[in-house]
Design a protein around this nucleic acid. Sequence first.
DNA 1: GAATCAACTTGCGCGGCGTGCAAACTTGCA
DNA 2: TGCAAGTTTGCACGCCGCGCAAGTTGATTC
Lengths: 229, 229
Amino acid sequence: MPDLLSRRELNKAATRQAITDAALTLLRAKGPGNFTVEDIAASAGISRRTFFNYFSSIEAALASVTHGFLDSALQQFRLRPANEPVLESARAALMQLADPMTVAPLAELFTLTQENAVLSRSELEAWDHCTEEIISAARERFAGTPGAVVDELYLRALAGSVISCGKAAMDVWFAQCGADLSPASLVVLRQLLIDAMGHLGSGFGSPVPAASPSATSTTATTHLNKERL
Amino acid sequence: MPDLLSRRELNKAATRQAITDAALTLLRAKGPGNFTVEDIAASAGISRRTFFNYFSSIEAALASVTHGFLDSALQQFRLRPANEPVLESARAALMQLADPMTVAPLAELFTLTQENAVLSRSELEAWDHCTEEIISAARERFAGTPGAVVDELYLRALAGSVISCGKAAMDVWFAQCGADLSPASLVVLRQLLIDAMGHLGSGFGSPVPAASPSATSTTATTHLNKERL
DNA sequence: GAATCAACTTGCGCGGCGTGCAAACTTGCA
DNA sequence: TGCAAGTTTGCACGCCGCGCAAGTTGATTC
């Protein structure tokens, strides 16, 4: 009993990491769908069977990257003060993650995964899982206020929308910037996240339509977001 | 030669239908994961290989139900006037579908699928696919107005949120009403859809029922508990 | 340290999946 | 009628995902 983390736990964590590393390496080298579990196992120095002790499929192994990202997003969300509006908490939580270290793995996975149906399935699952977690977190928050009846529809609609907007921002970012992780690119990402939350906070009211010539929505919506507080 | 639909097309449609019917029947009888492609093929009177000519997996075959539902939702959406606000179009489109005939298959699939991770994966894919379609539809709509620069973020965030809210309404409905397809239950569903779109349109402004006795959502959901019984 | 037990790894086997291929069979059309 | 194009089917193959039982490794106790 030397450490808080026993040798066993360390080994497991290391193995898990080795698997995802191997999977990512192979994904880079061969492209999606062109390698097998056996390849990953060999590359990670374990048996095929052991792979399945950790992940139920190749996609699951790769999706752990997304899970990691979303988990830390959730962690940030939970750190926000309970009396803060949910939208603002979400915005702040996402903001924390728009730094190179955190975003880089996800960005790479996106670029390697894009245009591949099989893989993106697990990605969808990861985002959905995160939605459920946010629902839980928000429910706990509301449950703190005494006598309140938690409106399940409100919770689920809100959480789902927040996630959708976060995802939309990511999608647009990848479409525009590719795997570019430069500071300028990350500024764009942050702004997209802010804008998306702004749209959501303002009920998708004005921004886009037709005639209005100027206002690329970037500047317009940030203010809206601020007013909503 | 005789018909607009050739014999070939009719046969294909019939086979496709036979497959999904067989899959649903087996799902009802044995539960998710407890039957094979071979079972479906036998039950549909075709070979295992032919099954794979139509669907790439059992889940895909079952998800065709969801696809059908969402496709008709999309069709309704496209029928709305182009100058109408997107949110209103979405609300109206979803409203059209809250009738027994349309909702029944989806409801059953939900109840049979719930609590099963493997199946819900394909469901997620179906919803995601619908999101992409809505993005296309909305883009076309905006592109119709000359000189407009279509804001991709706005589009994707909005479409994703609309779908999320629709899904949230469905989830809450199933959780509360189960597979109940009575008129009263469908009224509840309609109200949930309206409320969800309302939340979205108001930027999720009135946080949570809590103290505020106002608004549609509170009344709708409380009625619901009564009727549930 | 030796004994012990729980946790983890590994090889094996098995049924099922998804697909390329080539040989039948069906439909559309001249 | 006969040919061209489209469909179904059986076969074979590699891979997947998991149960099982036998090893191996890490922690605990005396």
